[in-house]
Design a protein around this nucleic acid. Structure first.
Lengths: 213, 213
DNA sequence: AGCAATTACGATCTGCGTAAGAATA
DNA sequence: TATTCTTACGCAGATCGTAATTGCT
């Protein structure tokens, strides 16, 4: 196995291009980096560097090795985060939302949450759900998507309904039915949370929760 | 970052369940493992072990950490293989096949290959194509699938045709057309490579090659 | 001359083993 | 008593820094 300090040296060298700059960036001296390059080649049994008297570059294999090194470092660091976050999640619960409906509801219910339940009211992007759960940054994310992976599962929670009240003086009030597209571009007075019960027009959106196993 | 020896100790402990057995498996002594457990907890700032006077177990977080550890080790080892194989692939070419058509053709052409081109005549499974290419175990795999990932791309190569010759005394010879299903269960005399030109009945199969970028 | 890489030497650190101790079943 | 984990001490190996050397631009 390749030691972390060697991986870091290789990955940094790929960025910095010279041993001197690499050493500086890592708060080390050039000779240490020189040694590192040799040790890497020795351990892998492969030529990673093209050596000239006062000049050194990566071979093709070295380029690949640097990418691999960066990847291993990333996996290591993300692993640490995952462990730390999981430990947190043993003591507290992080709730997230990707759609506004559940957010309104949860903020309303917030007063009843125990101290160790935290809601991030920010709307998370759909794409980030899986990684946020796999890293244990969130315990539970409310969304309208169904997700099943090795580490994430979804449960159907309920339908979300959105209602719009048109008073009798509004120019569309005489219509027997009104579609959402007819309302496009209009301004609304938004109801307070306490008025959530009074629903008239339905908007299709099934709400699901995704949680880490 | 977590050092490899700590990861290995943790992953091994998760299998062995006691420090003594862990030490034995790693050809080390118990006290070293004890130190490892403490150093891990210290570096992560997280409790991984439940300690009793003469007994120690993993916490929930510890269980997860052990899985993460095993994963990091795996990524490291696969990375090393990938680098070594890539270095090989700079000097030689490994050809693979998942279907028999290209195999026959390639074995036929083998005599013309340069010394550094090697064909594995074994039929590889479809599922393994991606990983074999990503690990640089193969440079080129001939298959009838089209694969595009970050590291693998496919090129269309040509159509594969299979022919069956029925001589005039065969009981189906009088039919105006014969489907493959009619031939099910019958025995064949297989033609030698030199006879590949004489094709009569076509079998649909597009041949593609997949290669690592 | 100035910069970059290498070589050589010495010091520090750190991880390992041995030996002894404490607790349990 | 046998097993398991922990603590204490000393050593060996490995990595790092300093200083000196070589080679290019």
């Amino acid at each position: 196995m390749l030691d972390n300090y060697l991986l870091e040296e290789l990955a940094t060298f790929a960025e910095c291009k010279t041993l001197a700059k690499t050493a500086e960036k890592l708060h080390m001296t050039q000779p240490s980096i020189t040694r590192g390059t040799k040790k890497l080649e020795e351990e892998l049994g492969v030529q990673l560097f093209e050596r000239y008297p006062n000049h050194i570059t990566l071979t093709k294999t070295g380029e690949l090795a640097a990418q691999v090194a960066a990847h291993i470092i990333k996996v290591n660091q993300e692993g640490i985060e995952k462990i730390r976050n999981f430990d947190q999640s043993q003591h507290s619960i992080q709730l997230g939302v990707t759609i506004p409906g559940p957010r309104i509801l949860l903020q309303h219910l917030k007063v009843e949450f125990p101290d160790n339940v935290h809601l991030n009211p920010e709307l998370l992007s759909e794409d980030s759900i899986t990684s946020l759960l796999e890293k244990n940054e969130y315990t539970l994310i409310f969304s309208d998507q169904e997700i099943f992976t090795d580490q994430v599962e979804s449960r159907y929670l309920g339908d979300e309904t959105m209602s719009v009240h048109l008073n009798q003086f509004m120019y569309l009030a005489s219509q027997s039915s009104v579609a959402f597209k007819d309302l496009k571009g209009l301004s609304f007075l938004v109801l307070s949370c306490r008025s959530l019960e009074r629903n008239h027009t339905k908007c299709n959106s099934r709400c699901k929760i995704s949680l880490s196993k």
